[in-house]
Structures are given as structure tokens and as C-alpha cells.
């Protein structure tokens, strides 16, 4: 089997915040009835986390689970364990009407860290990113400039952005432009 590489091989840019392509990440799309016992058990055994509430991310010992829509979850795990996790989920959901798909290689992940990360992201997405509006355990599916993306917080001033791998270079470029020194907004607190 050929060696898997991430979209931009860890590209990095430091301005008033730092943008890093984080490398390979295991991501699994799970669709089905989120309220069912089977779904709760499957997600629990795969990640250790519970089924998240609307627009929330729940974190377990083996990975995290993000709410994508009323019938869809995104399970995020280490890239090395993604096939095992898919197997666990598929087995646990075998009896119900559900879908488990490994989408790891269709995605790219970026980290924006530093004091100005909130500002940098707010310039690109139509989302209120002030601390009072955007909760630390929230996921927001939206757009970054012209392409669909989603992001959540991993720390006080640290965000992770996921997008399609085919637009990874575009997203890196707009993020790089957004964090370039001189572009600080100092609006969000």
C-alpha cells in the first residue's frame, strides 16, 4: 500500500496568528438516527464520547464526535486507528439504517493558533466568533471565503478548520492572507 500523505504536507505560515496544516486525521461520516440507542452505543464504543447535542462536539478518550446535521455525525480519530474505528462502528450499527464512511483522505485540516486567531477566522466566515457567541464546545459548518468548511475550538485562542482536500491550497492561501501582519482587526474579544 502506498504511503498516505496529507494535502499540503504540513505547510505553515506565521503572521499575527499561525496557520498550520495539521497532517493526516481520521474522519468518519456517520449517518442515521442520532436519537437511537444503537447510535449512542456505537459512538460510545468507537470514541468513548456521547452523541453530541445540536452543533456541539463531544470528546472521548479515543476521539471526538461532532454534530453535522440532524442525521449526521463526524467522528474524528487518529489517522492510524481510523480503519479499526470504521469496523467498530459498522459492526455496532449493522442492525440499523445507518451509513459509516471513511472520509479521512477527502479532507484537509488546518490549525489557527495565537491571539489573533479569532479575528483571522472571523474575516473569512459569516459567523459571530465573539467569545460570548461562539461556545468552546461548538462546531460551525459554514464557508471560508468561497468554499464550504467547518471549524471548532481546541483551546482559548486555537481553532481547527476542516475543508475538502481538493480546496486545501485555496483555504491555506486565504488563511495565510488573513493572518498576514498588518491585517489585525482587534475587534473581537
Amino acid at each position: 500500500m502506498s504511503k498516505a500523505v496529507s494535502a499540503l504536507s504540513g505547510a505553515k505560515f506565521a503572521g499575527f496568528a499561525t496557520v498550520t496544516e495539521t497532517g493526516l486525521r481520521g474522519m468518519i461520516t456517520v449517518r442515521g438516527d442520532l436519537a437511537s440507542k444503537e447510535m449512542a452505543a456505537a459512538v460510545k464504543s468507537a470514541t468513548g464520547a456521547g452523541v453530541p447535542d445540536q452543533r456541539k462536539v463531544s470528546v472521548g478518550d479515543k476521539g471526538k464526535v461532532a454534530w453535522m446535521s440532524p442525521d449526521e455525525l463526524l467522528v474524528v480519530v487518529e489517522y492510524a486507528t481510523v480503519l479499526d474505528t470504521v469496523a467498530t462502528l459498522t459492526t455496532a450499527l449493522a442492525g440499523s439504517h445507518a451509513l459509516v464512511a471513511n472520509v479521512s483522505d477527502a479532507r484537509a485540516v488546518f490549525e489557527i493558533s495565537g491571539e489573533g486567531s479569532r479575528d483571522a477566522l472571523a474575516k473569512l466566515a459569516p459567523v459571530d466568533l465573539s467569545k460570548s457567541a461562539f461556545a468552546p464546545d461548538e462546531i460551525r459548518r459554514t464557508r471560508i471565503a468561497q468554499v464550504p468548511a467547518a471549524f471548532w475550538q481546541t483551546g482559548d485562542s486555537c481553532f481547527e478548520v476542516i475543508c475538502f482536500r481538493s480546496v486545501a491550497q485555496y483555504v491555506f492561501d486565504v488563511l495565510r492572507l488573513s493572518v498576514t501582519n498588518g491585517g489585525e482587526v482587534h475587534h473581537l474579544v
Binding site: 445540536q54 452543533r55 446535521s69 440532524p70 459569516p126 460551525r140 459548518r141 459554514t142 464557508r143
Partner: peptide, 12 residues
């Protein structure tokens, strides 16, 4: 009504 987000036009 599905995700509760107040979305502006460009997201729709």
C-alpha cells in the same frame, strides 16, 4: 430550522 444557526444569505 434544522441546525438552529442564524445564517446569512451567502451561507444559503
Amino acid at each position: 430550522p434544522y441546525c438552529g444557526v442564524w445564517a446569512e444569505e451567502t451561507e444559503l
